[in-house]
Design a binder for these strands. Structure first.
Length: 1090
RNA sequence: GGGCCAAUAGCUCAAUCAGGUUGAGCGCCACUCUGAUAAGGUGGAGGCUCUCGGUUCAAAUCCGAGUUGGCCCA
């Protein structure tokens, strides 16, 4: 780009961004920036891999924008940043998408299609989605290493997973186990608890009576011993359970009670028959009502422990002949998952072959684990009568059979939350199957210790949420009975599949060495279709591979070394690992934050990341989550279309990145675009003048013009230093939103609204002047550093401004710049405060003018400033001319704190922090009395008297309790000014008129209208004109005539007199009630027409 | 059902940790400026600080109970 070249009149984000994209491409901006930092200190960032299904939504866009802003910032600080993006490409979600595409319904379809073909389809689908995501991320300017992303399907990456798993196995943390897991019967695989989605559904609700057996017989055998020798004969009694899954009753093994709970025996009557029912005391009324009993009577009160050891008959004994009947089963036991006040009856049907808690308690009691259900949710032969039925379909028949057996107390339906498969939405089943686990519960203490080695932003995310999650976490089931995933690298002896003599392979090299077949370690693809056929023969035993693939969460859990291609490539691991920084949304506490901790600890004994920035989710404008079914999704593409990538990024980056959700807002995004427009206008304002004067920032630097700098120059430079300091501080605390706020405040408030206004006239000077050069050098420095500070947020506009300012003199791209340091030389806190005070006075003055009905264009004879403190006096004394100029006042009159302006009245304001302790509960009354008092002089006695009058009692008021405020007299308008909420004084504008003032006022009114007409005629700034002026009021005409020199100068009029207008304009105006006619004509035209 | 986080102007947020008469930006309305001009400036309106209790002379702030939303867990 050529320096100070022509730029667009208006900020057009789309054209600008397109130009910048092309420019980046032309000069290899990204590659150069990476190269530029290659000798810097290394910084290891690891990208949490998005899943390759669907396109980037607002949340992903926020996430990548955050990553981009921090990576750019770190680069500018000199770090050599690792920025390899990643993609999570395996797993059930993609399998189900592909199944949908191919019209498959179950695993059989896949087997028929062929494993190899299916895997290829999944790979193609994932690759396709990856391309889409890459394009999405590039479209809003994220700079990562797009040419070389890590892909969880590549052989190196899959090897990294194998290696991590084998390290965990080396530590004895891999085991095959019989566990209760969540099974999706459609996908025919175990799914992780965090893949279960809960939805409100209608399910059966059945109350079942289990007939008690005479407990005298097996009293001695009962492990917990209960005596049955008193009270009513229990052999005719029944215990009542409740369940929403009748299909689990065939597997009933025991009934659980709360040993400390209260239970009752109830004699109840229905249809002339009497029954003795046992339920929790708290639930008995509800249960009997459900059973529609006509009458009942509590005949017995028991503690839970008294029920222990009671035995009962299996309610489906005939239908399921193979039901559990081992020693000690079909009895009542204590279990801590029972709640006598919760849902149900206080007695819990327990089937260790299904429920997780039932399984644990059943195992503890040494019972056989009976699960007559296959992975497809169909009853096996063990289920007797129900064999071959899908379990949910059998609910009805089982309920009917219970009724026939006289075991059904009541049946109905209930609405409750029930788990569903996250991908195919099928209701999950709890069944016990064989699965492979990483037994992280064996290293729970180590996990909790390792958490301490990471630093989280915000810190509560680690100390509350994450720690709680880790404490509760069960062993990690890593096996899935599916196809599209990393195969488990486990080989077991033929015909045996336990973990006793397993071989766990860690690398492709090892695989090639140990397998019986010929395998090229550099060429082998590790997917299931390839490795399934490989066998290992050692010491005469042949080993075959376990057919499962890994839980997809295991894939990303190894990202901290997988992204380095470790162990295949060990060149950078020692230097870089563990990651310095990761950044994801809060749903990853249970996801990636957790899986990495688990895998890092199991494999390496360490947490694989140092710093974690945890952001929230992107919600819609009403604070609801964006969802396709609700139709409130805002697509990033639309945001870019409406406001441009820079504005969208700035909006996203203006949100707090620490834990809070972001509420989307079109309004706020529009505001960001406006701020960028302001910056654009500020930037393009000095360009024509600099170009005209051949200003060269390399020749004329700030140092060269140091002597000629004016107050505002020094001030804006001082503000720049504070802004840099503030931004750096915020960035280092991961609050880029606050850093952005500081920058925009500087650009909009200080540069645009104050500095540019203040230097305009200096830039218009036609002759060369030291002052003008100083202003050029100052604004150049301000803009040059501002775009560097803005570059991480808005990389496009920053690039264009930087290019126009620097031409070929600096880096090819703004993103190679160093993060601007604070220069102590320009730091000037005193000056910043002075100007802050002056601006407060100016603002108050403008307010007072409006009250007095005097426009800024009209001078006022004087402004009286009553200062509350010496600091304000100093500021005014140091900068009186500037203040006169900004207020358009002939004179500034300063009233120091110890004096007062005679024409004023006073009132007082109470300070509650002092009144409260002194007056206690009467403080409110005293405050009101104080605030309402009006007095002639600001004296304590006067206010004390006034308050005492109102309250009819003597009150002691001290100086610190009140501050006096002035009451404006007639004819003068006054407005208080202050800083940071503290009053610092009052500005009084004396708006009285004199001939001199009116003369200038009217002259300026004429000037403005001539300027407007010049603009309508589209005249060049330099163009000379002839002017005709007829004013209807003689006095005003005379007043204006007194300022003819000013008029000629300002509007570049060489001739004033009557003229015929040919190529010019003539117009009548109404000014303050006076009619005037103005005509003008460019001189060149006038001459030509002669 | 449990845990964590949030709730303040129409919108986005600050003030909450260390209690003392609630603030900013945007939007809206009015005025103003006019050589940055599809810009700029000034002012105004707009608040039972989610609800109910408690502690305190005094609560947006501390405590308790709820409501709503978000995430996580069951």
């Amino acid at each position: 780009m050529s320096r100070f070249g022509a730029v667009d009149d208006q900020y057009d984000p789309h054209e600008l961004e397109q130009r910048v994209f092309e420019y980046w491409d032309d000069v290899d901006a990204y590659e150069k920036t990476v190269e530029h930092r290659k000798d810097g200190e290394s910084y290891f960032f690891v990208d949490g891999p998005p899943y390759t299904s669907g396109s980037a939504h607002m949340g992903t866009t926020w996430n990548k924008s955050l990553k981009d802003v921090y990576l750019r910032f770190l680069r500018m600080q000199g770090y050599d940043v690792t920025d390899r993006p990643g993609y999570d490409m395996h797993g059930l979600p993609i399998e189900t998408k592909v199944e949908e595409r191919l019209g498959f319904e179950n695993k059989k379809d896949i087997e028929e299609f062929g494993e190899e073909n299916f895997i290829q389809e999944c790979k193609d689908y994932a690759d396709e989605q990856l391309e889409g995501l890459q394009e999405d991320f590039k479209s809003f300017g994220v700079w990562m290493d797009w040419d070389d992303p890590y892909r969880t399907v590549s052989p190196e990456y899959m090897e990294a997973a194998w290696w991590g798993f084998s390290k965990a196995a080396d530590r004895g943390l891999v085991e095959k186990g019989h566990r209760s897991i969540s099974q999706c019967p459609r996908c025919e695989t175990a799914i992780a608890n965090n893949e279960v989605e809960y939805e409100d559904v209608e399910d059966p609700s059945v109350y079942v009576k289990f007939d008690l057996e005479d407990c005298g017989d097996d009293q001695g055998e009962s492990p917990n011993g209960a005596s049955g020798d008193e009270g009513p004969a229990r052999s005719d009694g029944k215990i009542v359970i409740w369940t929403t899954t009748p299909w689990t009753i065939p597997a009933n093994t025991f009934v659980a009670v709360d040993e400390d709970g209260d239970y009752v025996g109830v004699r109840a009557e229905k249809d002339g028959e009497e029954e003795l029912l046992y339920v929790a005391e708290a639930k008995h009324e509800e249960v009997l009502k459900e059973g529609r009993y006509e009458e009942y009577e509590v005949v017995e009160e028991l503690a839970g422990e008294e029920l222990i050891g009671w035995s009962y008959e299996h309610p489906l004994a005939d239908e399921v002949p193979d039901h559990v009947d081992a020693e000690g089963t079909l009895e009542v036991y204590a279990a801590d998952y029972v709640d006598t006040h919760g849902d149900g009856t206080g007695l819990v049907h327990s089937a260790p072959g299904h429920g997780e808690e039932d399984f644990e308690r059943g195992t503890e009691l040494g019972f056989p684990i009976f699960c007559p259900v296959g992975g497809d949710g169909v009853y096996t032969a063990e289920a007797g009568k129900y064999e071959g039925q899908f379990v949910k379909d059998a609910d009805e028949e089982i309920t009917a059979d219970l009724e026939d057996n006289g075991a059904l107390l009541a049946s109905g339906t209930v609405h409750h939350n029930y788990g569903h498969c996250w991908r195919c939405d099928t209701g999950i089943l709890q069944i016990v199957t064989d699965q492979w686990f990483i037994t992280i519960t064996d290293v729970k203490d180590e996990l909790l210790e390792n958490i301490e080695d990471s630093e989280w932003y915000p810190s509560w995310a680690r100390d509350n949420r994450f720690r709680d999650f880790v404490e509760e976490a069960p062993d990690w089931n890593v096996s899935r009975q599916r196809y599209w995933g990393i195969p488990l690298p486990v080989w077991t002896p033929e015909n045996r599949d336990d973990d006793e003599d397993m071989i766990v392979v860690g690398t492709r090299e090892e695989l090639a060495e140990r397998v019986d077949q010929d395998v090229d370690p550099d060429e082998v693809d590790l997917h299931k279709d390839t490795v399934d056929d490989l066998t290992i023969t050692e010491d005469g035993t042949t080993y075959t591979r376990v057919p499962d693939v890994f839980d997809v969460w295991l894939d990303s859990s190894v990202a901290s070394w997988g992204t380095l291609n470790y162990p295949d490539d060990d060149s950078r691991f020692d230097e870089l690992w563990p990651a310095d920084f990761i950044l994801e949304a809060h749903d990853q506490t249970r996801g990636w934050f957790w899986s990495q901790l688990g895998m890092g600890t199991a494999a390496m004994g360490e947490i694989p990341y140092d710093k974690v920035l945890m952001h929230g989710h992107a919600l819609d404008e009403d604070g609801r989550k964006m969802s396709k079914s609700v139709g409130n999704v805002v697509e990033p593409d639309e945001a870019i279309e409406r406001h441009g990538s820079d504005a969208m990024r700035m909006f996203l980056l203006s949100a707090n990145p620490q834990g809070d959700d972001m509420r989307f807002s079109w309004d706020e995004m529009g505001t960001m675009e406006n701020h960028l427009r302001t910056l654009w206008n500020v930037f393009r304002f000095p360009l024509p003048y600099m170009r005209l004067d051949d200003f060269d920032p390399q020749e004329t630097s700030l140092d060269d013009v140091d002597e000629d700098l004016e107050l505002v120059d020094e001030w804006v430079l001082a503000r720049l230093q504070s802004t840099k300091a503030e931004m750096t501080e915020h960035f280092e605390e991961f609050r880029q939103d606050r850093a952005l706020e500081a920058l925009l405040d500087f650009v909009v408030e200080d540069v645009s609204r104050f500095y540019v206004q203040a230097v305009r006239e200096r830039m218009w000077e036609e002759e060369d002047s030291a002052s003008k050069e100083a202003a050029y050098a100052t604004i150049y420095r301000v803009l040059r550093e501002t775009v560097a500070l803005l570059a991480p947020y808005a990389p496009f506009i920053s690039e264009e401004i930087y290019g126009t300012l620097t031409g070929d003199a600096e880096h090819p791209t703004v993103h190679m710049c160093d993060w601007p340091d604070v220069e102590a030389y320009w730091d000037d806190e005193e000056l910043e405060e002075d100007v802050a005070i002056l601006r407060a006075i100016e603002e108050a003055g403008a307010n007072a003018r409006q009250q007095a009905g005097r426009k800024l264009r009209w001078p006022v004879p004087r402004v009286v400033v009553a200062a509350d403190d010496q600091r304000v006096v100093e500021a005014i004394e140091r900068h009186t001319p500037l203040l006169e100029d900004r207020l358009n006042a002939r004179e500034i009159e300063l009233v120091s704190p110890e004096d007062r302006w005679g024409e004023l009245n006073y009132s007082a304001e109470a300070d509650m922090s002092k009144l409260g302790p002194a007056f206690g509960d009467r403080a409110g009354q005293v405050m009101n009395a104080l605030n309402e008092a009006r007095i002639d002089e600001p004296a304590l006695e006067a206010i004390e008297d006034a308050v005492s009058d109102v309250l009819e009692s003597d009150e002691e008021i001290t100086e610190e309790m009140v501050s006096f405020v002035t009451e404006t007299p007639e004819g003068v308008a006054g407005t208080a000014f202050g800083l940071n909420g503290d009053d610092r004084g009052v500005a009084y504008v004396d708006a009285s008129l004199t001939d001199d003032i009116e003369s200038e006022g009217y002259a300026r009114e004429v000037i403005r209208r001539v300027q407007e007409m010049r603009k309508d005629l589209d005249l060049d700034v330099e163009e000379r004109i002839a002017l005709d002026l007829e004013i209807d009021d003689d006095r005003v005409a005379t007043l204006v005539a007194e300022r003819e020199d000013l008029l000629r100068e300002e509007v570049r009029a060489d001739e004033i007199g009557s003229l015929e207008v040919d190529d010019g304009a003539r117009k009548e105006w109404e000014v303050e009630g006076v009619t005037m006619e103005i005509a003008l004509e460019p001189l060149a035209a006038a001459e030509a027409s002669d």
